[in-house]
Amino acid sequence: MSDGRNSLRDLFRIRLRGRWRPWAVAAFVLAGAMFATSALSSKGLDLRAASITDLNHVVRQERARSDDLQGRVAALNEEVGTLSRRVGGTEVTRLNRQVDRLKDPAGFAPVEGPGLTVVLQDAPKSEIDAAAEPGGVSQEELVVHQQDIQAVVNALWAGGAEAMTIQGQRVISTTGIKCVGNTVILHGVPYSPPYRISAIGDPSELQAALDDSDYIDAYLTFVDSYELGYEVIPSVSLEFPAYTGSTALKYARPDNAAATPAAR
């Protein structure tokens, strides 16, 4: 009889042990999921209410940061005020007035006044073709070159010209005239004859300066002999635009070789 009871007791223990194992595994899985969820939610921080005790420290840090930013804003406002006062100061006003006075002679302002215009033109085609025959002058002598334009410009400046244009472009201190083939390049733009050089100033003084130029006197010999174009047109009023091109400077190194004098 005792053996039968023992057998029943062992059977009950086996059944009870078989039922406990699944529940134990489920409980461990649930606990692990809860721990993982808590770790992800806290991102490594303490989720307990005790962390609220650091709130005063956080507030003090933010207040200090706010005070620092307000100090920087005040310093920048003061700097802006200082710069604004300088812009409106007497020194800046004086410099602006000086710039305004220099705009006219520098060519950066439009100008109007009496003056004259010199027109240079190549000789007629018949004269240029005749120059190709043996014994004639060179064809190069019967077309307008850079040095011819430059001679007129220099004479007009010497005659007191206040402002000048070539082909309608304002001439300034950095203006360069370059001859390429049968065209002249001015401020990067190629032009063909006739070339018009206009100057504002006293017309009689400008004319006298042209008459006193040795280079122009030599040029006029070709005008008389080969109909090279030369005309002077006085004007009661000329209007020149302000120069609006580039003001960048470019430098060149002079050649050591002696320059060959021009034929005219």
Rank of each mutant, 00 (worst) to 15 (best):
Val92Cys: 07
Asn6Ser: 12
Ser126Ala: 15
Pro110Trp: 05
Val137Lys: 04
Ala258Gln: 12
Cys179Asn: 15
Gly159Ala: 03
Glu112Ser: 15
Gly160Phe: 00
Ser198Asn: 08
Ala262Leu: 14
Gly115Asp: 10
Ile128Asp: 03
Ala26His: 12
Thr260Phe: 10
Ala158Phe: 00
Glu141Asp: 09
Asp3Thr: 11
Asp54Cys: 00
Thr247Ala: 05
Trp157Lys: 15
Gly181Tyr: 04
Ala262Phe: 09
Asn154Phe: 06
Ala248Val: 07
Leu116Glu: 10
Val73Phe: 09
Thr37Phe: 08
Pro124Met: 08
Ser237Pro: 04
Val180Tyr: 07
Val80Ile: 13
Ser41Met: 13
Leu8Lys: 14
Pro194Gly: 05
Arg253His: 08
Arg72Lys: 12
Ala259Arg: 14
Ser198Ala: 15
Thr175Arg: 06
Leu116Ala: 06
Asp3Arg: 15
Tyr195Ile: 04
Thr165Asn: 08
Val152Asn: 04
Ala50Asn: 10
Glu231Thr: 12
Glu141Cys: 05
Val189Thr: 13
Ala106Gly: 06
Arg19Asp: 07
Glu62Trp: 01
Ser138Pro: 02
Val180Lys: 02
Asp3Met: 14
Asp10Trp: 06
Ala199Met: 08
Ser213Trp: 03
Ala242Tyr: 06
Gly160Arg: 03
Glu112His: 11
Ser213Lys: 01
Arg94Met: 09
Gly107Phe: 00
Val80Leu: 12
Val118Thr: 01
Asp224Arg: 10
Asp100Cys: 03
Leu186Ala: 01
Thr90Lys: 12
Pro254Thr: 04
Cys179Met: 15
Ala258Leu: 13
Ser173Arg: 14
Arg19Glu: 10
Leu220Ile: 05
Leu206His: 03
Ala208Cys: 01
His145Ile: 01
Ala258Cys: 04
Ala155Arg: 02
Arg19Lys: 08
Leu206Ile: 01
Asp214Cys: 00
Thr221Ser: 13
Leu30Met: 15
Arg170Leu: 01
Ala75Ile: 10
Arg65Met: 07
Arg9Asp: 06
Leu156Trp: 09
Val119Gln: 08
Leu16Glu: 12
Gly229Lys: 04
Ala36Cys: 09
Asp202Pro: 00
Lys43Tyr: 07
Glu227Asp: 14
Ala132Pro: 03
Gly32His: 03
Ile166Lys: 02
Val99Cys: 07
Gly159Leu: 02
Leu16Lys: 10
Trp23Cys: 10
Gln207Asn: 09
Pro110Lys: 02
Asp54Leu: 06
Ala161Trp: 04
Arg13Leu: 15
Ser237Met: 13
Ile185Asp: 05
Leu102Met: 12
Arg86Phe: 03
Leu30Gly: 14
Glu205Val: 02
Val58Gly: 10
Val58Asp: 12
Val152Thr: 03
Gly135Gln: 07
Ala33Trp: 11
Val143Met: 07
Ala259Asp: 09
Val223Asp: 04
Arg5His: 09
Leu47Cys: 02
Ala163Asn: 06
Asp67Ser: 15
Asn154Thr: 11
Gln147Glu: 08
Pro22Arg: 15
Thr244Lys: 05
Asp54Asn: 11
Lys103Val: 00
Val92Gln: 09
Asn77Ser: 13
Ala132Tyr: 10
Val171Trp: 02
Gln147Val: 05
Gly89Lys: 00
Asn154Gly: 07
Pro124His: 11
Asp46Glu: 10
Asp104Ile: 08
Lys125Arg: 13
Lys103Pro: 00
Arg15Val: 11
Ala24Met: 11
Met164Tyr: 02
Arg65Asn: 08
Ile128Cys: 03
Gly159Phe: 01
Gly18Leu: 13
Glu227Ile: 05
Ser204Met: 09
Val58Phe: 11
Val111Cys: 00
Gly71Tyr: 06
Tyr230Lys: 03
